[in-house]
């Protein structure tokens, strides 16, 4: 009885080891930061995977991740070769991978901005700056690693109030993503929140916002945001000129349905230097060394 069990378990261990040896070689894998509802992301990026697969003539696969850090790690570890990053996550990821570069950004990402939103119970109205009355309210960021959900809002809060967010607000939370920030402020779980304007506008257009409960109180100045970043070593793996082909494929993307899902009106070339302002701010806040 006992020895049989040992035999079986030893055999199964052996089989386990064999079965985890990867059997797939050259699939081009990409990921994206989980900044919105997952269902939407999966739908959007599966479309992109199909599109790229046709354009590039290789198998292309999208993998969903649960955190910004997971997206950066996957890119750094060469488990994904391409990623749709936010401004900050892109800077962080490219700093970790030699020769990686920002390939393309959305037309809107050149001049991106944020909305600060508030629940109706606060009585706050839209103004030209973040009003002093937000002091003492509860506040939620998006994800800890987000540009528009964390970095830029924190930068402006510190600039306007001269204090850390924890001192300005009675309670500071991290909702996880932009859709979640919207839902939490709409429900009054938090009184004030900050989110990416694109998510707000798309949800508004789709009729998913109860505008009686939540309204915009401030629009931030513009900054560069989302971009496609690619690893420096893709040409060695997928053939000469592969990086350029990916870039051209992204720039040529004109399927209105796919663009609408981002939502972006199109993609334009980007470079690492475009994101210097983001790097500056992240350094100031001590998010990157």
């Amino acid at each position: 009885m006992f020895s049989r069990l040992i035999r079986h378990t030893a055999l199964s261990l052996l089989l386990a080891l064999i079965s985890i040896v990867p059997a797939y070689a050259e699939t081009f894998v990409f990921t994206a930061i989980p900044d919105e509802d997952e269902t939407k992301l999966v739908e959007r990026f599966r479309g992109i995977a199909d599109y790229l697969s046709k354009q590039l003539d290789v198998e292309v696969r999208y993998i969903p991740v649960k955190s910004y850090a997971a997206a950066i790690s996957a890119f750094r570890n060469n488990q994904v070769q391409l990623a749709w990053f936010g401004g900050l996550s892109g800077v962080q990821a490219r700093a970790l991978v030699e020769d990686s570069e920002a390939l393309a950004q959305g037309v809107e990402d050149q001049e991106f901005f944020n909305y600060f939103i508030a629940h109706k119970s606060t009585g706050l109205e839209r103004s030209d700056t973040l009003p002093e009355e937000v002091r003492g309210k509860t506040f939620t960021f998006g994800s800890k690693g987000s540009t528009s959900g964390r970095l830029i809002p924190e930068y402006h809060i510190r600039k306007i109030f001269g204090e850390a967010p924890e001192e300005v607000f009675t309670r500071v939370g991290f909702s996880g993503n932009h859709t979640r920030t919207l839902r939490l402020v709409e429900a009054g779980t938090y009184e004030v929140g900050a989110l990416n304007y694109k998510v707000w506008e798309k949800e508004l257009e789709d009729g998913n916002i109860d505008t009686d409960s939540v309204k915009i109180i401030w629009k931030t100045p513009a900054y560069p945001n989302y971009q496609w970043s690619i690893r420096g070593d893709v040409n060695e793996r997928f053939g000469d000129g592969f990086k350029e082909r990916v870039k051209q494929a992204l720039l040529a993307l004109d399927d209105p349905k796919l663009l609408e899902s981002f939502p972006r009106s199109g993609f334009v070339p980007a470079s690492n230097d475009d994101y210097e302002p983001i790097e500056e701010v992240a350094k100031q806040l001590g998010i990157i060394d």
Binding site: T9, L11, S12, I20, A74, N77
Partner: peptide, 19 residues
Amino acid sequence: LPIYVVGAPFFLGEGLPIV
């Protein structure tokens, strides 16, 4: 039990290769 233990590793999904 032995069947489960032997079979389980085959159903872990493929994931992504280790570097």
